[in-house]
């Protein structure tokens, strides 16, 4: 499989866009015409060829540009990547998981050679050839988690398991939906989820936590989450909300198609072998409304989902200011015809 990597930006002039193939494989998150929180966890099984679920770690046409954007964000704010000292074993677990998966499923792009603890990692798109000793952080130019996540799409959190809870004790978070690793590091599952409305009363977090505490090695799980972003911006952090917040007030009927994006997170969770920690990957996908409505079923369905969305969720996701303008725009692409069940385009 060959991937053509686009040169594009996620800030300033915002040249990001999706190819027709990328639109086709977009992980549209709604399997019906309405949305509410649920414990939507399933096995992270290989999905259809070319879909974002085909492989455990999905590398796509935006890879090189996303990694460049991450480097810019980290240069401006190194605290987007943090790890408490006891997480070092989990960091190495993550190096192994990502390198093995990337090399196995994208052999033209990545090669991993293991000779005991002596490893050689070749990353062709980023022009990296690194020999190092697994377990010896001094043989890598960055700490292990930072090293590998500067080369892998998606944000990552490492969760330590103790006292019947999960603790967010490390992470690389540069493209988050408005939450701060620097603030949340050290929190447990219920604490970092505290700002989420309604879910607590539905016992969603209690049930999800119980499930994850029993997560087995070799049996990863996944779920989809979504929000919306104005402009194809990856760094929608609270740290910089004073800079990007104003974008939410710039949406007009004329620019909805270009500016308003559906942002989907493919979240996967693996139990790690040495540390017994869990890695939580948050792989984000952005699609603007012009692109979305090229799939008629998605246009109809997203219009209905957005129209019926509970106000608490709209407020929490930060959609309130441009929600109605977007619904009105999408209405022109919804003829009222029934939609088929499931996520797939018709």
């Amino acid at each position: 499989m060959t991937v053509h990597f686009k040169q594009e930006t996620f800030r300033d002039d915002y040249t990001y866009s999706n190819s027709p193939e990328a639109i086709r494989r977009f992980p549209f998150p709604f399997d019906k015409d309405e949305y509410m929180y649920s414990v939507n966890i399933e096995q992270h099984m290989p999905g259809p060829a070319k879909s974002p679920f085909e492989f455990p770690i999905d590398i796509d046409e935006h890879y090189v540009s996303e990694m460049r954007d991450r480097a810019i964000t980290l240069a401006q704010d190194p605290k987007r990547c943090q790890s408490l000292p006891h997480m070092i074993t989990a960091e190495w677990d993550l190096v192994e998981l990502l390198m093995e998966s990337m090399a196995k499923h994208y052999p033209e792009l990545f090669t991993l050679t293991q000779d005991g603890d002596r490893w050689r990692w070749i990353n062709r798109p980023l022009d990296i050839d690194q020999t190092f000793t697994f377990g010896d952080a001094s043989t890598l130019p960055y700490p292990p988690m930072e090293y590998i996540t500067r080369q892998c799409q998606g944000d990552f959190a490492l969760l330590d398991q103790r006292l019947d809870n999960l603790w967010m004790d490390a992470g690389m978070i540069t493209s988050q939906a408005d939450w701060s690793l620097d603030f949340d590091i050290g929190m447990n599952f219920l604490e970092w989820h505290a700002p989420v409305p309604l879910a607590k009363d539905m016992a969603i977090f209690e049930r999800a936590l119980k499930f994850l505490l029993n997560l087995q090695q070799g049996r990863p799980v996944r779920r989809l989450n979504w929000t919306m972003t104005i402009n194809p911006r990856l760094d929608t952090s609270p740290e910089n909300y004073d800079k990007w917040g104003a974008d939410r007030a710039t949406v007009t009927p004329e620019n909805v198609g270009r500016k308003v994006h559906l942002r989907v997170e493919l979240q996967a969770m693996w139990r790690l072998p040495r540390s017994n920690a869990i890695v939580f990957s948050i792989r984000g996908y952005l699609i603007n409304m012009d692109e979305l409505v090229t799939v008629p079923k998605w246009a109809r369905r997203f219009h209905r989902v957005l129209r019926e969305l509970r106000p608490e969720l709209a407020e929490y996701k930060g959609l309130t200011r441009y929600r109605q303008t977007t619904i009105d725009w999408l209405a022109k692409h919804d003829d009222g015809a029934p939609t088929s069940p499931g996520f797939q385009p018709d």
């Binding site: 701060s180 603030f183 590091i185 929190m187 609270p238 004073d242 800079k243 917040g245 104003a246 007030a249």
Partner: peptide
């Protein structure tokens, strides 16, 4: 945040 022993402050007029 228990680690920081602090609440979080966020710019109130970022959007307007």
């Amino acid at each position: 945040s228990r680690r920081l022993a602090a609440f979080q402050g966020v710019r109130i007029d970022a959007e307007i």
